[in-house]
Design a protein around this nucleic acid. Structure first.
Lengths: 111, 111
DNA sequence: TACCAGTACTTAGCAACGCAGAATAGTGCG
DNA sequence: CGCACTATTCTGCGTTGCTAAGTACTGGTA
């Protein structure tokens, strides 16, 4: 898509990735491919990897190196307890923002 | 609120302000006060002003200087045709993102 | 053997955005 | 005169996603 999505992803992409990991563990390459499949067509490879490093350093995920048959070993990330707490907080913040936005959208329609 | 909101506002705050201006013209100080009232308790003064300068330079809004009884003249911004088009695009992008997020939230709940 | 595509991760430099904090300017009130 | 409120501007900073390139491992093909 365009620049608009890129800017909107700042702050939400992290939550998106953590939400994915809350369903089941996954590794960077896999997450990138899945996101592209879901319509985030120009998510940059490096973006996801950098994000994963960040959330790992903040202690929100656990990592396990798993050998791959098709290339270098995968770094499989899984959401830990702290990560789940953080994800809760993310959803609360998202809800807050989404509510205001929806109200604004309604308000603008009538005029 | 916290750091989470700050990051999420990147990319959405612009749309929020344009949406406000789509209802009626307004000036920076007024917009800041209104947002704080709506729960964006720690929106920085300077943030709104900088944003307004940006959208003006991109030709999305028209500006008119209006004298104030209580201080320096106000810069009253109003959304123009190009701005309305841009706002439409913003809403489309927002919808796209909001849909994926809601799906992820549902998906995460079951596990 | 040499090469290439696919898988998988890393790194360096860049641009955009919101925030912190201070400065400037105008009005009215004690 | 000083202070609070109104109203805008500016500099420097941290975070985030993107671009672009590089590394590493496997399997298939010419």
């Amino acid at each position: 898509m365009g620049k608009l999505v890129t800017e909107m992803l700042k702050g939400t992409l992290e939550g998106i990735v953590l939400a994915i990991l809350s369903v089941r563990p996954a590794y960077g390459y896999e997450i990138t491919a899945w996101l592209r499949d879901q319509g985030f067509s120009d998510i940059a490879e490096g973006t996801i990897y950098a994000l994963l490093v960040r959330v790992e350093q903040r202690g929100l995920v656990d990592v396990e190196k798993v050998p791959s048959e098709k290339g270098p070993p995968r770094k499989v990330y899984s959401l830990n307890a702290q990560g789940r707490e953080y994800l809760e907080e993310f959803w609360r913040t998202w809800s807050f923002l989404a509510e205001r936005l929806e109200q604004l959208r309604k308000g603008g329609k009538q005029s």
